[in-house]
């Protein structure tokens, strides 16, 4: 019963969420630094620093009370206000989330198309040369740092060829998302290609595939059925990467000036903007839980032998 399954999963996620909130809260309190110093600038006397501290909600109550207040506010749907911008954290995250979703979706789409495509060629072609080329491409994809690859793409497409913009989002034109999506998706594409190739080669060596071929099934039908059976580890990989992208890719968003969740949260970390950090982590956890549930559904679609219990 899928509905019962979802309900159970949602209940199960509460301890995870609470644990993440408590751990993040404690870690933030243990970390050196003070958000006040991001806000006050220069020439503020010690007395004025104390006054301003007392006006910030983080200083006038005990840690346990702060945690309790925070958890209570979350239940009310209030993630607090940014110390720096004075904007509601929830609103700011919601403003940036669509940008991150756009980038993550296109990246994973490109990664799936390229990765599965390359994996299929690798698994089906018996040429040593093709095999080596694929190995070279995927090794390059896996081992190249995202930061460097992004700069390389900017150099090539924006600086030398001048056919794509180097940064920003403008009014949302597609041109602005191509380079960040390629950068972000490159590593996933390489992993998916390797996984597809290995998994498909295993399935193609199974006796039932030989039997299907012997029964006269067309090569396309054989491939379709084999690929479906080989999909489970690939779905896991896609799910993990997609969940990670939805939390924002700090490096890609920074290089391309993409106004997403990752860059927002990292900026908050550098300014010790606790409400934004907590809100970002909470949202990230929720996204991972949601993506995991979605992946479970995809498993069932890919392999009907799996049941949602």
């Amino acid at each position: 019963m899928p509905l019962k399954y979802f309900f159970k999963k949602i209940i199960e996620s509460f301890p995870t969420l609470t644990g993440v909130i408590i751990i993040t809260f404690i870690l933030l309190k243990l970390a050196p630094g003070n958000p006040l110093y991001s806000i006050i600038g220069e020439r503020v006397t010690a007395e004025r620093v104390s006054e301003l501290k007392s006006k910030m909600d983080i200083y006038d109550v005990s840690l346990l009370r702060q945690l309790k207040m925070y958890l209570f506010n979350i239940l009310k749907g209030d993630l607090g206000y940014s110390y720096i911008t004075k904007q509601p954290v929830f609103t700011s995250l919601m403003e940036k989330l669509p940008n991150t979703i756009k980038l993550a979706s296109l990246s994973i789409f490109l990664a799936v198309i390229c990765g599965i495509g390359l994996g299929l060629i690798g698994a089906l072609t018996r040429s040593v040369l093709v095999d080596k080329i694929i190995l070279l491409i995927t090794t390059f994809g896996i081992s190249t740092p995202v930061f460097w690859f992004g700069l390389l793409l900017i150099y090539l497409f924006a600086r030398c060829l001048r056919i794509l913009p180097a940064s920003g989002m403008s009014e949302g034109e597609l041109a602005y998302i191509i380079l960040p999506a390629l950068t972000l998706g490159s590593r996933s594409a390489a992993y998916i290609a390797r996984m597809t190739k290995a998994s498909l080669q295993d399935v193609l060596a199974e006796p039932y595939v030989l039997s299907a071929k012997a029964r006269g099934l067309s090569p396309f039908s054989v491939l379709r059925h084999s690929l479906k059976n080989a999909m489970i580890p690939i779905i896991t990989l896609i799910g993990l990467d997609f969940g990670s992208y939805l939390n924002g890719s700090v490096l890609t968003e920074t290089i391309f000036g993409w106004n997403g969740v990752g860059r927002y949260v990292v900026m908050a970390i550098s300014q010790r903007d606790y409400p934004v950090i907590m809100g970002g982590v909470l949202m990230g956890t929720l996204i991972f839980i949601a993506v995991n549930i979605l992946m479970d559904i995809f498993y069932v679609v890919a392999d009907p032998r799996i049941e949602l219990k």
Binding site: I154, Y155, A166, S167, T254, I255, R263
Partner: peptide, 10 residues
Amino acid sequence: IPEDFTAITE
């Protein structure tokens, strides 16, 4: 634009 290289390209 946080990254210098990107800004230079722009």
